[in-house]
Simulated scan of single mutants.
Amino acid sequence: MPPSRPVPHDDAADGVPSWRYQPASTTGATRLRVRPGTGHDPSTGLRLLLDGELDVDTAGALRDDLTLLAARATAASLVLDLSGVTFCDLASLYTLLGIYRTLPLAGIDVRLVEPSAPVRAAARRAGLSTELDFDRAGEEPR
């Protein structure tokens, strides 16, 4: 059975998209969780925290869900906090690169912040550290 995947859901009450999960199996376990971050002004953008494994199986679902979210977005920016990613492979790095390069074409500024050690190591091995322009601590890009 395929892994669980995030399902974007718009909460009309507050106008800020949130993420709910529909488990694909009876265990309800997810390998990658995406949840709204705190400490970010939702009127100007959306901050999402990624927790778990970012790999070929979960990256496609993340890409699809962020595409759907972008189509419905009212926010001008998306911050992906990668501090909780425990595993990262080459396929997921290229998915992040695609997100980073494509969503600005839809008018959504994308920032990748706080890459975990596995994300930094994978990006370094793949030679994508500068391409992905990781921010540190949510600061403005260098």
Rank of each mutant, 00 (worst) to 15 (best):
P23C: 06
D81R: 04
R120Q: 15
Q22I: 00
T74N: 07
A59W: 10
L112S: 10
P17F: 04
P23T: 05
T38E: 15
R63S: 12
E140W: 08
A126G: 08
P118A: 09
R35T: 14
A13N: 04
T58W: 12
V16R: 11
W19G: 00
V85M: 00
G84T: 02
P141K: 12
T30V: 08
L112F: 08
G45T: 11
V7E: 13
L66P: 09
L78P: 05
R35I: 09
T102F: 02
L69G: 01
L54G: 08
R136G: 05
A29K: 14
T26R: 12
A123E: 13
R5L: 07
V85H: 00
Y100D: 12
S77L: 01
P118H: 12
D81W: 05
D14Q: 09
L103D: 02
V119D: 12
L90R: 08
T67R: 11
L97P: 05
R72N: 09
L90F: 08
T27L: 09
V119M: 13
Y94A: 01
R142Y: 14
P3F: 11
A91C: 07
S18W: 04
A75L: 04
A76P: 00
S77M: 06
E139D: 15
F87G: 02
T38Q: 14
R47C: 11
L128K: 06
G39T: 05
R125W: 06
S18T: 08
R142F: 14
A126W: 06
C88Y: 02
A75M: 09
D109Y: 02
R20S: 01
Y100G: 03
L93M: 08
P36F: 00
G28Y: 02
R63F: 05
T26H: 11
G60A: 12
L62V: 10
T44S: 10
A24V: 04
P141F: 12
W19M: 03
S18L: 03
H40F: 11
G127W: 10
A13L: 07
R124E: 15
R47P: 01
A13K: 04
T38Y: 10
G98N: 12
A91E: 09
A29P: 03
V56H: 15
L82P: 00
D65A: 14
A137T: 14
P2H: 06
V110A: 06
G138D: 15
R101G: 07
L62G: 10
D65S: 15
A122Q: 13
R5N: 05
F87M: 05
P3N: 10
L97Q: 10
P2T: 11
L68Y: 07
T74W: 02
L103R: 07
G98V: 06
S77R: 12
R124W: 09
A117C: 02
T95P: 02
A70F: 08
A121D: 13
